[in-house]
Design a protein around this nucleic acid. Structure first.
Length: 108
DNA sequence: GCAATGACTGGTA
DNA sequence: TTACCAGCCATTG
């Protein structure tokens, strides 16, 4: 059952999903960062994985390079940001990447 | 095999 | 700040 058969995530998707689950609350990662971290394809591939199986992971912690959440899900993401205390940019519904950007390490 | 699409990115206006 | 354009890369029809 290595084969995903009916829609199971591929190895690449598993890495992306595992990384997204690894993102601590109050932190976010950009699509390009994830693509670079897993070392595959590009940000578009990460987005494709999220649209297919992103519903099983905290997808709202994955944002675009400008700090804006995924298209069509901005409102839902904002609710999660407020609940987790994600640093937001005042005056805009965007995340403050300067503080919320997570590089994949817990320690300082 | 080719063309179109997409939860993207960076640069310029 | 937003808007438009060109580039990138795997998936889908």
């Amino acid at each position: 059952m290595f084969t995903d058969e009916d829609g199971g995530p591929d190895d690449y998707a598993e890495e992306v999903l595992a990384l997204v689950e690894r993102i601590p609350p109050g932190r976010v990662m950009a699509y390009g960062d994830i693509a670079e971290y897993v070392g595959g394809g590009g940000p578009r591939q990460v987005g494709s994985v999220m649209s297919s199986w992103g519903g099983g992971v905290p997808w709202w912690r994955v944002v675009r390079a400008d700090g804006r959440p995924a298209s069509g899900h901005e409102v839902r993401a904002l609710s999660h940001y407020a609940a987790e205390g994600t640093p937001m940019r005042p005056g805009s519904d965007r995340v403050d990447l300067g503080r919320a950007r997570w590089n994949g390490e817990d320690g300082p």
